[in-house]
Design a protein around this nucleic acid. Structure first.
Lengths: 339, 339
DNA sequence: TTGAAAGCGCTAACAG
DNA sequence: CTGTTAGCGCTTTCAA
């Protein structure tokens, strides 16, 4: 492996001069620069980031931690989009990312202390992760891709405005004449599920209506309520005319269930999802859903982290960013059916 | 940041002795070891992999390259599973992974020369990637997660036996009485699509039947043929009674299309997918599909790479591994409908 | 069983 | 504009 010393010797200059050339330092005579560059090209020299990192005390590397307890979630396209967003921004700034799947019980600060990553992006970290306080209270640069409780010290995070998305979805359904709603919602310990439900609840309250607790059905992410449960919902007095689901997979399953039960979607019943995953644009009918920009969430997280590291980034600085959501109206919602 | 020097000073020993302790070197007196360890714990010392990597000439890091031209593919759950498999094995051996999204035109050998990763895992690298020969012909340890042409020098890869999966699927359909098959297949430049089709073609040939070229429909991954095309297929003389799709997303779209056209699946028509993604287990009807173990593919790739790096791994060594596929029979295939 | 010295490949500080 | 010296934090000789 060719080193800076090799280049210096071959170009008849000092190592420092070579260093200046590869770092685009201005104080180098053009002639020298060209000579050195020629040698660099000829020898195929590539500077070692390892050595550079050691002496500079930073590695130009960011650690991305994905909590393994989000394993059930990980098959989902949004994660990959987050990663792509992060990666794109980082590579623009000559950073690389060390991706780490963390078990709940292992400290992810090791990446910082051992690998000397310059900062951490914590993806989908559960709020009760035991090592979270260490990061939030320490001096490790970090960004969370999920908000943490408002009561804590102001943390760095990007998140998606699920509540607003839910409000938009309900407004849409309301305008279509729907008044009875069923909610198929992920488990309460998932923040997004809580927030969506809160949004729906608020939007209903604004219209003078209480959410009907008997029409809220909890299930695991991506797995909708069973046929039995859905049937039971529809047999209640004042049955729901619209189903709001906390992700697109659930929504699509519900649609299929309803179709199998002989209902038309959106003719008889309406369904909205959340996320706007690829599948929402492929299902039949096309899914009306709450769009979130997962790529942007990732790229923004990276930008926020780079800014903490003193880099100049495009977006204005802020400790906490709530990305907007937008209801995408497609084919799974329609006017309430007159009886 | 506390260094080995701090520990040495505090423990009244030389740096080398501390080094021996953290590397579990045998030649240390128990008393010394304990004293040093106590200091390490007290100070919270973590050795810098950067410094260690510099002196040892290896970084205990693996580069994982995901070709960006596979962008359309990346929303798909299998990728994430590959990554999880890689990560799990690596961390067991104290390796970390540097994940890099490579554009087609940028050389991914930079990771090796600049970041000094010890080896590369190339995910979904197109066979015509211009830098592939550099890796295959060079002395960089690597593993591909996709086979390359048999005519090349023997390369290191793990792949999935799509052909065998297709054969199994066709056998299953044949046994159910199906004789006319439509194939909704990804683009020809995708290896998996080629191999699936080859398997189907072979299985048909073994039964004395030629594949009907007019029943082969090409489309992009995850996007099935349109309603018009599917309708046209069904209006051909001797229409297909079964649809074989090259991924689960396509299969599910086709099922929905068929249902919308008034057909029962599997009552009137059968559909098989490929991959066994999460969605296959959630769709309605549950999808009969060709299962592949994406997690295993990742973990095996990591093991193969570590072995090249001289590590002791579980699996026996081999340059090329073809992981088995298995047809999972669920609800989307049934006996051909008697007319 | 332990330590001193040297050096991995690079850059920072300071001269010249 | 260029070079010298020193040193980042660790491991590797080689001696003691």
């Amino acid at each position: 492996m060719v080193t800076i010393t090799d280049v210096a010797r071959a170009a008849q200059v000092s190592k420092k001069t070579v260093s200046r050339v590869i770092n685009d330092h201005p104080d180098v005579a053009d002639a020298t620069r060209q000579r050195v560059q020629a040698v660099i090209d000829a020898l195929g020299y590539q500077p070692s980031m390892l050595a550079r990192g050691l002496v500079q005390g930073r590695s130009n590397t960011v650690g991305v931690i994905i909590d393994e307890s989000a394993e059930d979630v990980f098959g989902y396209p949004l994660y990959s989009e987050n990663l792509r967003g992060i990666s794109r921004v980082l590579s623009r700034h000559n950073f690389d990312m060390l991706v780490h799947f963390a078990r709940h019980e292992t400290s992810y600060t090791d990446l910082y202390y051992q690998r000397r990553v310059d900062g951490l992006i914590l993806m989908s970290m559960p709020v009760d992760n035991p090592f979270l306080p260490v990061v939030l209270g320490g001096d490790i640069p970090y960004v969370l891709t999920q908000r943490v409780s408002d009561h804590e010290a102001p943390a760095h995070w990007v998140d998606v405005d699920f509540e607003s998305g839910a409000v938009q979805a309900l407004e849409h359904l309301w305008a279509l004449g729907h008044r009875q709603f069923a909610f198929l919602i992920g488990p309460p310990n998932k923040t997004y599920a809580r927030l969506l439900l809160r949004g729906y609840r608020q939007a209903l309250a604004d219209r003078g209506q209480d959410i009907r607790e008997d029409l809220i059905v909890r299930s695991q992410p991506y797995i909708s309520a069973s046929k039995t449960v859905v049937t039971a919902l529809l047999e209640r007095p004042d049955p729901p005319t619209a189903f709001a689901c906390s992700d697109d997979m659930m929504a699509i399953q519900v649609i299929q269930l309803l179709q199998k039960l002989g209902y038309q979607v959106p003719g008889d019943l309406s369904v909205v999802g959340s996320d706007d995953a690829l599948i929402a644009r492929l299902a039949s009918p096309l899914l009306t859903t709450i769009h979130q920009d997962a790529y942007r969430k990732g790229s923004l997280a990276a930008e926020m982290l780079l800014e903490q590291l003193g880099k100049q980034v495009n977006s204005p600085s802020s400790r906490q960013v709530l990305l907007p959501t937008e209801l995408v109206v497609r084919g799974s919602t329609g006017p309430v059916r007159s009886r």
